[in-house]
Design a protein around this nucleic acid. Structure first.
Lengths: 221, 221
DNA sequence: CTGTTATGAACCGATAGTGAACCAATCTAT
DNA sequence: ATAGATTGGTTCACTATCGGTTCATAACAG
């Protein structure tokens, strides 16, 4: 039988890693070799095994690090969210925005509704596309602000941030036209009308219809 | 060893910044280098890290300043989300989870449904409360995993993280009893049943009913 | 014998930190 | 208005510590 020292060292290392002995960086190979009373090449093989199965990450000139990265940490979740596809995002908008419109119809103050109306009007009167986009987004955001659900509002913020990133930008550009802008204005007006009438079910339906239009335009079909 | 001092200095600076030690302007790099007993180049690297993530802004000839917090940045959104009230959160769960169950009924693979069933059974057979809680959460999470909407899945992760924070913990404890645990098991079984029958509308309704029970228990009424 | 594994050593290239010099923008005091 | 001090920006040579690679050698199992 061969000595399999490398394998033994690998399991020993794995144990000490999972015990949390090393926060993120493990000692240099040369030190480990000394500690285990073994040649560096042997340690290298052991570390190589742990690197293959994703336990460790090696960086020349820096050191060897435990792969770590808690997949349930906030940053990790946000990082994965950045890869959200337009279709997935749209599916969620179709869930949340009509609900937000419904909440807004019942909960909004008169002042908040005025703010929504202002955003609607400014968007309609916008002359160039970036300005329309801004007030379009603001219109939707102000509806969320009326919902009286802070978490829902922040979820919309989150979606806004995600939509202001790379693949979306071009997509929005391609899917835009003067005709569609006017369609959006009409649909916004319908939503605003239901909000002002304090009609939750109507607001929900109007928002749903609007988003279905947006989805058609954005995702093509 | 490359000591990787820059990273440590960066975190030290981040801490002192958030503690409000410096209102607006932080000390010159040369001073910091002296204070940390380190070369200026090293401080520059640390400050560079904080500049990249938007914590600091540097201006030649003037100094280095803590950046005004952008309310539309990911960290800011996250920070505000941490203050989410149980009622607001519940309102969103009532929107998202039934939808996820509906998606799952149509999109899940057989293997994924097995995983859901396993989580259900393990939760039912759990003897102590922490174990039940874990598999309860896992049951819900695996349903989201079946939804085939990555963004929806991450939204659930987000809510899970938020719910694992301070005010929630005690709340869950107070709202818990053996009787309720059994109720949850029965309701979970109903959801699982609809999923296995590939009945989206039924799954949606069953999940909604379950969450309404949870809401009653959690928020009292 | 052959093939595998471990050894020990040497050398490579990448990365981090040091210390110092000099540049360019800005502010302050005269 | 000008001169000098202050501050971040850039570059450089140098050192030390890493992982990456190779090779000759020894030990051992089949």
């Amino acid at each position: 039988m061969p000595k399999l020292v490398a394998g033994d060292i690998a399991t020993a290392l794995r144990k000490r890693i999972s015990s949390g002995e090393w926060e993120d960086r493990i000692p240099p190979e040369r030190d480990l070799a000394g500690e285990f009373g073994v040649a560096r090449n042997t340690v290298r093989r052991a570390v190589g095994l742990l690197e293959e199965d994703g336990t460790l990450v090696r960086q020349v000139g820096r050191g060897t690090f435990v792969a770590a990265a808690d997949p349930n940490s906030m940053p990790a979740v946000f990082a994965r969210m950045e890869g959200t596809s337009p279709a997935d995002m749209m599916e969620i908008r179709l869930l949340l925005e009509p609900a937000a419109a419904g909440f807004a119809a019942t909960n909004a103050s008169a002042g908040e509704l005025n703010a929504v109306r202002d955003a609607y009007q400014t968007a309609c009167e916008a002359t160039d596309m970036p300005e329309f986009e801004h007030w379009d987004a603001e219109f939707h955001h102000r509806i969320f602000a009326c919902s009286r659900n802070e978490f829902l509002k922040e979820l919309h913020n989150l979606m806004r941030i995600l939509r202001n990133q790379s693949p979306w930008f071009e997509m929005k550009k391609r899917s835009f036209s003067e005709e569609r802008r006017q369609t959006y204005c009409v649909e916004h007006e319908a939503i605003l009308d239901r909000l002002l009438r304090r009609d939750p079910e109507g607001a929900r339906a109007a928002m749903l219809a609007h988003l279905q239009t947006v989805a058609r335009n954005l995702l093509g079909r």
